[in-house]
Design a protein around this nucleic acid. Structure first.
Lengths: 188, 188
DNA sequence: GCTACTGTACCGAACGTTCGGTAAAATTGT
DNA sequence: ACAATTTTACCGAACGTTCGGTACAGTAGC
């Protein structure tokens, strides 16, 4: 079954961890080589495009994972809060309960290429629209639902920064618990 | 009045702009030299400790500015929403209506030293406590006020990331308008 | 024998930092 | 008042190191 102890997918998830923790500039080839256990030559065999192609591969994997989670969320039987709860559960694991930062935020600083910016933008909009779809399906006004989509992504991103900055995952965990209800609350 | 066109404070604010836009690793000495107009050697005259001392100086300036804004907020005559509105007005200028990222978030990625992490943590807690103080003064429960302090910082940080990621300041501006009311809303 | 993969050695460029030195302002001695 | 001296501000060039990336000779598995 497992001919290789370290498949390409394993390497991609190792790269994800590196890039989101250190950013594009901080993740040097030396560190990448060290954490993957691959020499430079091996890295350039798997990713001929170099560092950029590694980020590219990580982003593709992230797009795939995002589409899967959002699709799962929409397939959940139940009301809007139940669906959002499913999303938050999945994302809590992705971010290790707030202990791991978000790649998208990490790629916004430094020498990250403009091509990445486009992918980041697309990914953020994917999540915004997914949340908005859940809310409009539950009968919420279209405009408000879009705002709440933005609010959801915003809260998660902000909670991650707070958790990193305070070196305490508690605020993240609290926010992730409150999000399903907060986003569904009607306009007061 | 202005004997020097470029004072040390000017250089510090230029450094702030560079570090928050490019992060610690992305802000190379070459770029720093270019944007300040000072040669590399001159930079080491003003900041003998090198890049780290530059970040240190920027953080000190940021602490000073934060204490000033939070103090202003507490001196505003009026209810809690009015005070928070003052805070949001000042912060909107600091972040150029969402077009400029936050230094604290930028320093969380990359090779930023642990000494910076402590200062970042202190600064985040300063803001959380300031918001909480406004709310408790207005009669809100202590525990909830602290949570709302976290929520406030979190929303601002998240809104900044969203504005950067979507390359659109609109979500940031909307959130900054809503924050004064959102944070004061009683538990439902 | 052929493809997939890897270790080693190497490259030019850029990194943060230091060196040696210049020009002017401020301070001091008389 | 003025020359001597120190301090301050600045710079170009170079330091050693690390960067991302390449060339090539292998080795393992089919």
């Amino acid at each position: 079954m497992s001919k290789q102890a370290t498949s390409k997918q394993t390497h991609v998830s190792e790269l994800l961890d590196l890039f989101r923790r250190l950013g594009y500039d901080g993740a040097t080839l030396a560190k990448i080589s060290q954490t993957t256990g691959l020499g430079k030559a091996s890295l350039y065999h798997h990713f001929p495009g170099g560092k950029d192609e590694m980020v590219e591969a990580v982003l593709v994997a992230l797009e795939h994972g995002s589409e899967q989670i959002t699709a799962e969320m929409l397939q959940v039987q139940g009301d809007a809060p139940a669906r959002l709860r499913k999303m938050c559960d999945r994302l809590s694991k992705v971010y290790d309960n707030g202990q791991k930062p978000c790649l998208l935020a990490a790629l916004l600083s430094g020498s990250a290429k403009d091509a990445f910016r486009d992918r980041v933008e697309k990914l953020l909009q994917l999540w915004i629209r997914a949340i908005a779809t859940v809310l409009t399906t539950a009968g919420m006004d279209e405009t408000l639902a879009c705002q709440r989509g933005e609010d959801g992504v915003m809260m998660i991103q902000g909670a991650l920064i707070l958790a990193q900055g305070l070196q305490d995952p508690a605020p993240f965990q609290r926010v992730m618990q409150q999000i399903p209800e907060t986003l569904c609350r009607p306009l007061q």
